[in-house]
Amino acid sequence: MDFQFVGAETAASTPLISEYLESANFRITRLSTDSSLRGRIAQFPELTFAHVSIPSAEIVWPRDAFSTDRALVFIVLSGSASITSPGRVIGRASPDGPLFFVPPGDKRVDIVLDAPRNDLFYVSIDASLIPDVPVTRVTNPQWSKQESEVLAPLLSFSARLCALSDMPAIDVGPLQGAAEEVARAMARLIAGPVSESKTIYDLAVAVIARDCAEARLDTALLAERLGVSSRTLQVAFQHNGVAVASELRRARVRLALQLRRANPVMTSAAIAKAAGFGSTDSFSRAMKRFGEVLTDD
């Protein structure tokens, strides 16, 4: 899809553009009328690539219920941009322009483009495609020459993809598969090596270990504390071969065993409550599932 327009009012009054902005959940709050906004978009299920040339502007991504499971790769080829959010934003500084990765989440995102003309790519990615991408800040935000060399062919593919006037009248499966791999590679490159950052799964396991004594801690509350949706959290755990509920039970069983070792006279009912189990029955089932049985002597 190709489009070109001048000013935010034109975007709002042009059906094709307004429908796309609504579906993408983007709001243009300020757009310079000194020059036009030009864009080319390639869309697949769960994935959108866009190559945009835009004058100075301010854009809001409010993150409604339909966009909390989406991540954003934002690469400025020329110009100036900043992205801020109460949630997580990973920013890198390259010689050409800033690069950003916004992990899945539910916090509003504000995008400011300061230069008179800004040339950029953005990729909107469903969380299910990137469960292993880190979501914390990298230790070295400065962009290296080697990273630029890796990024160059990914950008070349993205530009050619967006330049397609229409998807080929053939099976687009191979093209979609390649696009998904490129999107994942871009996200991983900007987010940094897994060894330097933590994934949603890593962060979730740490929160479970810290808060498992709370009986009310479940998938929904854990997702809320991490600033992601329940679906994003579940996908991250599935990628690691475990369910959220199973990890919660395992953490509570470990805590129960620690409590018994620290205080052998503590009753099973007291241990169950202190370890975050909702009842003594659920406590007993969990202990048996992990091959442990605690009795009151």
Rank of each mutant, 00 (worst) to 15 (best):
I75Q: 01
A220V: 14
D297E: 12
D119V: 14
L222T: 06
E58D: 10
I54G: 02
L47N: 02
V150C: 03
S156W: 05
S156V: 11
I54H: 03
L16C: 09
R260W: 05
F237H: 08
D132S: 12
P86Y: 00
T29W: 06
D126Y: 09
G177N: 04
R38M: 13
L189P: 10
I90A: 03
P62E: 03
R252V: 05
R108D: 10
L72Q: 04
G173V: 05
G173L: 06
P174D: 00
A42E: 04
S282D: 13
L47D: 01
E46L: 15
V89P: 04
F26E: 08
A115P: 12
F283V: 08
A185N: 06
S156G: 07
G87S: 03
V76M: 00
I208Y: 11
R210C: 15
P104W: 02
S94F: 01
A152R: 11
I59E: 05
F74K: 04
H51I: 10
A270Y: 02
I170V: 12
K145A: 14
G177Y: 00
P95Y: 00
A274L: 15
L259T: 03
R70H: 14
L129A: 03
F237R: 05
E147S: 10
I170A: 07
S165D: 10
F66G: 13
I111K: 07
N140Q: 13
T136A: 06
T10Y: 03
R160W: 04
R117Y: 05
A179I: 00
A251R: 03
T219A: 15
S124F: 09
P174W: 00
D34H: 11
S36D: 10
P193Y: 07
L217M: 12
R108N: 12
F49D: 01
F66S: 15
L77P: 01
Q146S: 13
R216F: 15
A215L: 14
R137E: 09
I90T: 09
S18T: 11
P55H: 00
F157E: 03
V293Q: 08
P45M: 07
A71C: 12
K107I: 05
S80F: 00
E58G: 09
S18H: 11
S158W: 00
E46R: 14
A11R: 09
